[in-house]
Design a protein around this nucleic acid. Structure first.
Lengths: 140, 140
DNA sequence: TTTTAAGTTGTAATCATTACAAAAATAGTG
DNA sequence: CACTATTTTTGTAATGATTACAACTTAAAA
C-alpha cells in the first residue's frame, strides 16, 4: 500500500506529522468519525493538538480529494477516505450507519449534460434488520 | 391534485392551518428552502408564526413521510416533498443546487439484505457548466 | 361549561463550525 | 549559521442552526 507521505504528496499536500496521523486514523477507522472523535483519539498522541487543526486538515483533505465529507441525517459532518467509494445506509430508528459495500449501480448517462461530475454519494435510509426484529417482538 | 388537508390526513397528521400553509409552500417551492426561508415567507401571512413551529412541523412532516430533509454540503437542512423523489447536483464552486429530474437508476438488488429501504437520496457533486465556462475563460 | 389534549409560541441553552490573529515550526536564502 | 518568509498549528471568541422547555392558546371531548 502507498505510504501516507506519498499519498499526501501525490495530492499536493505537504506531509506534516499531524496530517499523516489524521490520514492514518481515517485509514484505520471502521466507522465514520466526526471531528470530535478524531480529535479525542489523537489528542493523547499529539498533546498540543487543537480542534481547529483537525477542521483545517479535513477541509484540506476534502478540497484535495483525499477525504470526503459524508452527509448523514446528523447535525455534524462525518468523514471517510475518498479512495474507497461506497454508499451508506442509515437506520431511521437507531441512527446506526452501515457501509454498503456492494455499491449500487448509479446510472448517470445523459442525466447531467454539461456538468463535470466529481463524486456521487448515495444515502439509503430505512429500518435495519435488528430494529425490524425489535418491532416484530414488541408489537409497537 | 389531492387537497392539502387530504394529504395530511392520509399521513395521520391533523391539518391545522399552519401545517397546510407550510405544505403549500413546499409544493410551490422551486428551490429547496431551509427553515429560515420558510419562516420568512410565511411570517407576513401568519404574523404570530414562530420559528419553533416551522421546526416542529418539518420534523412532523419528515417523520410522517410527507417531506424529506435534503442533506447538502451545507450546515443547514433543506426540505422538499417526499412525493417527488429526485436526485440533486451541487456545484463545488458556486454551491448552487440543481434538481436532477431524470433520476439516476440506482440498482439496490441484493445490496442490503434484510433492511427495509424507505428512501434513497443521491447527491452528485462536481462543477456546473457555468463555472466550467468561467474557469475556461479566466485561465485560473 | 369544564376538562383534557393538541398545537403554537418565545426564550434560553446547546453544539458544530468558522473567523481570526498570534505562536510555532519549517523552508529558503545569503 | 543567521535571517527572513512561508506554512502549519494553536486558542479564543463569534456565528448560527437546532433543540429544550415551559407557558400560552386553540380545538376537541365529556
Amino acid at each position: 500500500m502507498m505510504q501516507n507521505d506519498a499519498v499526501l504528496k501525490s495530492h499536493g499536500i505537504k506531509p506534516s506529522l499531524t496530517r499523516m496521523m489524521i490520514l492514518d486514523y481515517l485509514k484505520a477507522a471502521k466507522k465514520h468519525p466526526n471531528v470530535d472523535e478524531i480529535y479525542q483519539a489523537l489528542q493523547p498522541k499529539i498533546p498540543t493538538l487543537s480542534k481547529t487543526t483537525v477542521y483545517n486538515t479535513l477541509h484540506l483533505f476534502t478540497e484535495k480529494n483525499v477525504a470526503r465529507a459524508v452527509m448523514l441525517k446528523d447535525q455534524e459532518n462525518r468523514y471517510d477516505l475518498a479512495s474507497h467509494p461506497h454508499a451508506h445506509f442509515q437506520c431511521v430508528k437507531c441512527n446506526e450507519v452501515f457501509d454498503v459495500f456492494r455499491l449500487p449501480d448509479v446510472q448517470l448517462d445523459g442525466v447531467l449534460p454539461g456538468a463535470q461530475v466529481q463524486d456521487v454519494s448515495v444515502l439509503i435510509s430505512g429500518v435495519c434488520e435488528a430494529c425490524q426484529a425489535k418491532e416484530g417482538t414488541r408489537h409497537e
